[in-house]
């Protein structure tokens, strides 16, 4: 599906089939979760990253079903189409943003998502303790969501942030790599 068609589907679903809620509530809730994690792990930001990714993974497993139910889409033909669908439909339907897909590698297995705006990090400034800006990826939950969601549709990917405005980089950028396509599981005893 081309980018424009995906964009149109995304807009359509966003306008008609989505119940909406105040964005600030979600922003504040996410912030509360990150703050709680930082307190629980006593400033071990690498551990917080891992935990955020794990929570995102759990969310992704469920989110994909909701996504498929709302958009009625079938399986994507290839990874490029998947990337366009994620950016134009997936993010639009859930976060009302449309990141751009760029920086494809030649084997079409890696791409970058550039986020112009990130509603999860709206009012946020990282703590000024000298380590947070180097270690914490604030929106790391999004990486987990992508990983979980794509795993349910038979794609194993690795997603991580390579830049974040909160850390002083120019743009918020996430790098997504296709590791492998997962085969269908066979019932026990069959081959």
């Amino acid at each position: 599906m081309s980018a424009t068609k995906a964009a149109r589907v995304g807009e359509d679903v966003w306008k008609t089939r989505i119940d909406k809620v105040n964005a600030e509530l979600v922003t504040l809730t996410y912030g509360s979760i990150v703050a709680q994690l930082c307190r629980d792990f006593e400033g071990d930001y690498l551990e917080v990253n891992k935990q955020l990714e794990k929570m995102g993974y759990n969310i992704g497993l469920r989110l994909i079903e909701d996504f498929l139910a709302k958009t009625n889409m079938g399986k994507c033909a290839n990874f490029r189409e998947t990337a366009e669908t994620i950016a134009k439909v997936g993010f639009k339907v859930f976060l009302n943003i449309t990141p751009t897909v760029t920086n494809w590698t030649t084997d079409n297995k890696q791409f970058s998502l550039i986020f112009e705006e990130n509603p999860l990090a709206d009012f946020v400034e990282l703590p000024d303790d000298g380590r947070a800006q180097n270690e914490l990826w604030y929106s790391n939950m999004l990486c987990g969501v992508l990983r979980g969601a794509l795993e349910m549709v038979q794609m194993q990917v690795d997603a991580h942030f390579v830049g974040d405005i909160l850390r002083g980089n120019e743009v918020t950028e996430m790098r997504v790599t296709l590791v492998r396509i997962i085969d269908d599981e066979l019932p026990p005893g069959e081959d």
Partner: peptide, 29 residues
């Protein structure tokens, strides 16, 4: 880019996200 102190606080007043996002986030919490 500017920092969050340059953004107007009312900018996100009317913005909306899907209820499902909140539901999933809350569920995970």
């Amino acid at each position: 880019r500017k920092s969050i102190y340059d953004r107007h606080l009312n900018r996100s007043q009317r913005s909306e996200l899907s209820k499902a996002s909140f539901a999933f986030l809350f569920g995970e919490m």
